[in-house]
Simulated scan of single mutants.
Amino acid sequence: MEKAFSLLVFIILFIMLASVENKVKANTCMEGLGNCQQCSERCKAKHGPQGEGSCDIKNQLCTCYYPCGSPSGPQPKKCYGGAGLCGGNCGPPCCNQKCAQKYNQGTGFCDSIGHTSLCKCEYPC
C-alpha cells in the first residue's frame, strides 16, 4: 500500500513540474535569426535586453528567445515571426498558410516595407 501511495505522489509531482515547464515555455517567443554570428547581440538588439540568443552548433543557426507580448492590457499575448516574402506566387492567402504551417495557431499577413513585401506571422504564446 505504501509503494502505491509513493508512486501516486511521484506521478502527481511529475505532472505538476511538467505543467510549470509548459507555462514557462508558453510565455516565451522564439525567432530564427539565421547564422550564428553575434547571435546573442542581434537577439538583444531586436527584442531588448531580455532576449537570449542560442546558437545550434550543428546547423550553425541562431534562435532568439524573448518574452511574450505585454504582461498588461486586455490584448492576448502574441508572438511574432516571419515566413519569407509576399508577392509573385505568394500573396496574403499563401502567407497565411505558411504561417499556419510554421507556427501553432499562426496567422499571416503581408506587410510592405519600401519596395519589399514580407510575410509576417502572429501566434499566441
Rank of each mutant, 00 (worst) to 15 (best):
E2S: 03
K3E: 12
A4S: 02
F5T: 01
S6R: 13
L7K: 00
V9T: 09
I12Q: 06
F14S: 02
F14A: 10
F14T: 08
M16N: 06
M16Q: 05
L17C: 03
S19F: 05
S19C: 06
V20W: 03
V24Q: 10
K25F: 07
A26T: 04
N27Y: 05
T28H: 04
C29D: 01
C29S: 02
M30K: 12
M30Y: 11
E31G: 05
E31I: 07
G32R: 09
G32H: 07
Q38H: 13
Q38P: 00
C39D: 01
E41T: 12
E41M: 13
R42W: 02
C43M: 06
K44T: 15
K44V: 14
K46P: 00
G48A: 11
G51K: 13
E52R: 15
E52K: 15
G53K: 04
S54T: 15
C55I: 09
D56N: 15
D56E: 14
K58A: 10
N59Q: 13
Q60T: 12
Y65Q: 08
Y66P: 00
Q75N: 11
K77G: 04
K77A: 12
C79R: 00
Y80D: 01
G81L: 06
G82Y: 02
A83T: 08
L85E: 09
G88N: 14
N89Y: 05
C90D: 06
C90F: 02
G91L: 14
P92W: 07
P92A: 15
C94K: 04
C99A: 11
Q101E: 15
Y103V: 10
N104K: 14
Q105I: 03
G106P: 04
F109G: 12
H115D: 15
H115G: 11
H115W: 10
T116M: 10
T116F: 07
S117D: 10
L118Y: 02
C121P: 07
Y123L: 13
C125F: 01
